[in-house]
């Protein structure tokens, strides 16, 4: 659901500090702008908030509520006048602690979850841990939302409740996947595996041919990805013929030709050291 703040400027109180915000603006955005930290896992600036992980729960009240308060997810709660927000009150910490404990039971061998739980003083889960080895998905849904946002919407959750998982249609390789690996890029627990070897990329049990830079031979994006974003972004097929580095080099060469200056390759800086770089990852890097 898209969300437009109505724009009226109001004052709210977060952890004792008075902060200005526009009505309708989500609390998490307001807090972050004011430099107040609220942990959030399933939130990412590239996609709309969903309220899945519940980590960004905060306690809200108003002077007029007669001492009554409630927990809401900061990522989705629209700011309103006179709101008093506590981001680290006892009920908030209690909720976050139990959440981490639950994730640790679900993914006992996930380094990400272990670190998160440790921040709340949990070394070992109070609950029954899943049989090892588990996969390390905490079902935050970021992969799905980023895939939807980029267009292919190739993966989604299947099943309900405790059987829910992220998968392609009929739990097979997703036919609409273009191999851009944006899902893997945003995954907090790094549980979506991407393997690149001999000019191919394997993700979601699907193998993709990688396009090579016509100048340096460095692999760039998958053929499907180039086709998809070339068409969707109106960039044309030729856009992906050169890697970023060679593109800059070419531009610089043309510029120096005009200006009559000498050029050395090393002076342009190295291209990204990551094994792949795609429009997906460009828009979603944290």
């Amino acid at each position: 659901m898209s969300h437009e703040p109505s724009g009226r400027v109001v004052k709210i109180e977060i952890d004792g500090r008075v902060v200005e915000a526009r009505t309708g603006e989500f609390l998490l955005a307001v807090a972050r702008r004011a430099g107040i930290d609220i942990p959030a896992i399933c939130q990412h600036e590239a996609v709309d908030p969903a309220g899945n992980c519940r980590m960004c729960l905060v306690e809200i009240t108003k002077a007029s509520w007669d001492g009554w308060s409630r927990l809401v997810t900061a990522c989705l709660y629209p700011t309103e006048q006179d709101l008093i927000v506590k981001t680290h009150s006892a009920p908030v910490i209690e909720a976050r602690t139990v959440l981490c404990d639950l994730w640790l039971a679900r993914c006992p061998d996930s380094a990400y979850v272990q670190k998160l739980a440790a921040e709340f003083g949990i070394e070992k889960t109070s609950y029954q841990p899943a049989a090892v080895p588990t996969d390390q998905c905490i079902l935050c849904g970021l992969c799905i939302r980023v895939c939807e946002k980029l267009g292919p919407a190739a993966i989604y959750t299947v099943n309900r409740g405790g059987r829910k998982k992220v998968a392609g249609p009929f739990e097979g390789p997703p036919p609409d996947c273009i191999g851009c690996a944006a899902c893997a890029e945003v995954c907090p627990t790094s549980c979506i595996t991407v393997a690149e070897r001999d000019g191919t990329r394997t993700i979601w049990d699907k193998e993709f041919q990688l396009l090579a830079c016509t100048t340096c031979g460095r692999t760039l994006v998958t053929i499907e990805e180039a086709r998809y974003f070339g068409r969707k972004g109106g960039l044309g097929e030729s856009y992906y013929q050169l890697c970023d580095r060679c593109k800059r080099l070419q531009t610089a060469q043309q510029a120096t030709k005009v200006a009559g200056l000498p050029l050395t390759v090393g002076g342009l800086g190295e291209a990204s050291g990551r094994p792949f770089r795609s429009p997906g990852s460009l828009t979603t890097s944290r």
């Binding site: 959440l99 994730w103 405790g162």
Partner: peptide, 23 residues
């Protein structure tokens, strides 16, 4: 029943019901 029928979207309901059921 609720574990079966929870949509599984949010953590407390999905994981909480799993654990309540195990216990």
């Amino acid at each position: 029943f609720l574990w079966d029928e929870s949509c599984g979207k949010c953590t407390p309901c999905r994981e909480g019901l799993s654990q309540l059921q195990i216990v």
